[in-house]
């Protein structure tokens, strides 16, 4: 049914994404579809990492940990953005196109600051993406 699942990850709040991560892993095993974890970094130092290179390393480690823990096939890809507060949704839309993704699983309610950002991003993707978007409520 699905051949590649994309899961956008906010590494700063990865602990709050458990539900979406679990659902994505279940679907991945069910359809035997690998998961692509996508992270978006600014080129500036941020809370997660101080260089984009470092950010990419952390995301890769995250994907490997997920693969081991949940018994799935996983890869990671980091995108950099000039203004992550505002162009996250368009960057994710591009990630879908560039990676041949056919299902997106994403959380909409990581509590705290980025909460409404996530909501608006999932909403944007559900509305504009050419593929299925599974929006996971907390």
């Amino acid at each position: 049914m699905y051949s590649k699942i994309m899961v956008p990850v906010d590494l700063a709040h990865a602990d709050k994404l458990e539900k979406a991560l679990r659902v994505a892993a279940d679907l991945s095993r069910h359809y035997e579809a690998p998961i692509l974890y996508v992270g978006i970094s600014s080129s500036l130092p941020g809370p997660v990492a101080r260089t984009p290179e470092d950010f990419a390393k952390k995301l890769k480690a995250f994907a490997q940990a997920q693969a081991g823990e949940r018994g799935i096939e996983a890869e990671a890809r980091t995108y950099t953005s000039h203004d992550p507060a505002r162009d996250l949704d368009t960057t994710l839309a591009r990630a879908i196109k560039e990676n041949g993704v056919d299902l997106v699983v994403m959380a909409t309610h990581a509590p705290g600051a980025p909460e409404y950002l996530f909501a608006s991003n999932a909403g944007y993707l559900a509305q504009h993406a050419p593929v299925s978007v599974f929006v996971i409520r907390d």
Binding site: P45, T51, E53, A56, S81, R94
Partner: peptide
Amino acid sequence: DQSALIPDGEADVIDTEYEIGQDNIQ
């Protein structure tokens, strides 16, 4: 190149315990 990771190469990153956003409140 926005879509790909920007290569960094050598840089003299300062070693500090400070985490960006550690003094932030939400």
